[in-house]
């Protein structure tokens, strides 16, 4: 397995607004710790799932990967080359290879442009095909995401959420990327439509040899479509491993709790026991030591003091836990 995207110690904090009262009391400026010291490899051809609760920093991480956010610290290398230093044409060339599919199909398309115009613009700016061939390529892109050709002449408001997400996928595919970062691409859709979009992603990956980073809070999707999964908690990765093995025997207490929390259809497997105690702590003041310790049944003095390191546990499986 070759490493396509190497993420090392990536950190992104958002300075919080400081009130006048805080300023007068001389309190230090606070920051939301959105992504903390994340290290992760994306392998060529795989689907990597990133899961976690809302607000754990998944989307910020995704936006750092496509350079919508600039990380405060850490490094990002695509096929061995540093990504964070890229500017101008070099950055555009990077984004040609690494594209993003957005969460909200309603706000991620320009409502004033027809679908054809949206796709043609990407083809034109990156000079993917000669100008005369653009209409044919637009039709080919629509075929790829299973939309009818006459969609090109219509505007986004004429489409359903699922169809719009197909348009968003076609737009990302227009520049022929190698890696697609999908940031909760189905969480705004009805369950019946979710399946169709997930299957489209899997089909496209097969046909085009794409590498996919699939960010979601839905463990069932991750289990269904990813090769490896990374679990995030409060900006940090707590466990990474092969999907099947990790679901069979999760090691980190947080992963265990998440998997227990998946709703069960079969009555015999249902449980009324709460999977995790309490709420997600404020990312403004993450707990000292292991960020999960206030909610962890196994926590002891070490957990309250030392931040656990993400360590290999054999079989390409990393866990950040003092107890596991």
């Amino acid at each position: 397995m070759t490493v396509m995207l190497a993420i090392r110690n990536l950190t992104r904090r958002f300075p919080a607004r400081r009130s006048l009262a805080d300023l007068l009391r001389g309190r230090p400026r606070q920051a939301v710790h959105a992504v903390e010291q994340v290290s992760l490899d994306v392998h060529r051809g795989e689907t990597l799932g990133i899961v976690g609760e809302s607000g754990c920093g998944k989307s910020t991480l995704a936006r750092c990967l496509v350079r919508l956010h600039t990380p405060d610290a850490g490094s990002l290398a695509f096929e061995g080359a540093d990504v964070l230093a890229l500017e101008g044409p070099a950055r555009r060339a990077y984004n040609r290879r690494v594209q993003m599919v957005f969460q909200d199909p309603y706000s991620s398309l320009n409502p004033r442009l027809t679908v054809g115009e949206t796709l043609a613009e990407a083809l034109h700016v990156h000079a993917i095909v000669p100008k005369a061939d653009i209409p044919a390529r637009v039709r080919a892109l629509l075929d790829l995401v299973h939309l009818p050709h006459d969609a090109a002449a219509r505007r986004p408001h004429e489409f359903s959420g699922g169809q719009r997400q197909r348009i968003g996928i076609a737009r990302a595919l227009a520049v022929e990327p190698h890696l697609i970062i999908a940031d909760e691409p189905v969480s705004a859709l009805d369950v019946s439509v979710q399946a169709a979009i997930v299957n489209l992603f899997m089909e496209l990956q097969d046909r085009l040899g794409l590498t996919l980073v699939f960010i979601t809070h839905d463990l069932r999707l991750v289990r269904h479509m990813t090769h490896r999964v990374a679990v995030m908690y409060l900006g940090r990765i707590v466990e990474v491993g092969p999907t099947a093995a990790l679901f069979a025997a999760p090691r980190h207490p947080y992963t265990q709790a998440l998997i227990r929390a998946v709703p069960q259809v079969k009555p015999g497997r249902r449980t009324t026991e709460a999977a995790v105690i309490g709420e997600l702590p404020s990312p403004l003041e993450p707990p000292p030591g292991c960020a999960f310790h206030p909610r962890c049944p196994l926590a002891d003095a070490t957990c309250r003091r030392d931040i656990p390191v993400l360590e290999g546990r054999g079989g390409a499986w990393d866990v950040a836990c003092h107890q596991a």
Partner: peptide, 9 residues
């Protein structure tokens, strides 16, 4: 959609 524009370079 503006974020998408930026990602498209």
């Amino acid at each position: 959609y503006v974020a998408a524009c930026k990602v498209l370079g």
